[in-house]
């Protein structure tokens, strides 16, 4: 996981609630087998006009927000599909932090897996922040995860909350799979004590297809 400690960047205001992951990255761009290269398609339907040209009214197409590293949004950011392509597209564009009134849960989780810091602020705070960064001359924002503050507008400092474990994981840029695999002996012992054996997966007589792989009598474990 990419580490995150501090960030100073241009912040782009997107004063819209319920920005769903279809809006962040439309479905037709999910047909990729890679994580990279999705930045061009970020917010595609808002960013481009029907003929493919840039929509000059969209904030990320304007100076200085075209180089934004932070988004300041509304409520329930990232709702809808679980597609991690949404945070991948944000990251590929250069967004490392999203400040919103609230987040949808799967998206919020997905951010942490990709070194993106999602910050929740109260409505009055975020309204003032959005208005400030909408001014091209005052769009720089400093985010300090270690001190848990957002600073903008020449010294206005907003503290934010974050679960201690999530904070540490971002700062350290942990490899969660490696961590889990380190306790593999505990996992195996738990499975021995708590799981029952089930037969291999069957496709049924109507299936008309043989199961491709992995059906060769493997032991099926599941919690009792």
């Amino acid at each position: 996981m990419t580490r995150f400690e501090r960030l100073e960047a241009t912040a782009a205001p997107i004063p819209i609630d319920n920005i769903d992951t279809d809006k962040i990255l439309p479905g037709e761009f999910l047909k990729t087998v890679e994580r990279k290269g999705l930045g061009r398609a970020l917010f595609a339907r808002m960013r481009y006009r029907a003929d493919g040209s840039l929509n000059p009214d969209f904030v990320l197409n304007r100076v200085p927000w075209a180089n934004a590293g932070i988004l300041v949004a509304g409520a329930n950011f990232g709702c809808g599909s679980s597609r991690e392509h949404a945070p991948w597209a944000l990251l590929d564009f250069g967004i490392r932090c999203i400040i919103a009134e609230s987040f949808a849960e799967i998206f919020y989780n997905n951010c942490f897996k990709n070194g993106i810091l999602p910050i929740v602020l109260a409505v009055p705070e975020i309204s003032a922040l959005r208005e400030t960064v909408a001014d091209a001359g005052r769009a720089r924002v400093r985010v300090d995860l270690i001190g848990q503050t957002v600073t903008y507008g020449g010294g206005i400092e907003l503290p934010f909350d974050i679960a201690e474990g999530r904070k540490r994981a971002l700062i350290e840029g942990r490899d969660e799979i490696a961590e889990t695999l380190r306790v593999r002996s505990t996992l195996l012992a738990w499975q021995q004590a708590n799981c029952r054996e089930l037969p291999p997966i069957l496709l049924g007589e109507n299936g008309g297809a043989k199961l491709g792989h992995g059906s060769g009598g493997a032991v099926l474990l599941r919690a009792a």
């Binding site: 291999p200 496709l203 109507n206 299936g207 297809a209 992995g214």
Partner: peptide, 16 residues
């Protein structure tokens, strides 16, 4: 991927 990692797979042309 299912071939390499031996994951059970329902093929596209299966009635399942």
């Amino acid at each position: 991927n299912v071939e390499q990692f031996k994951v059970p797979y329902i093929p596209l042309r299966s009635a399942r």
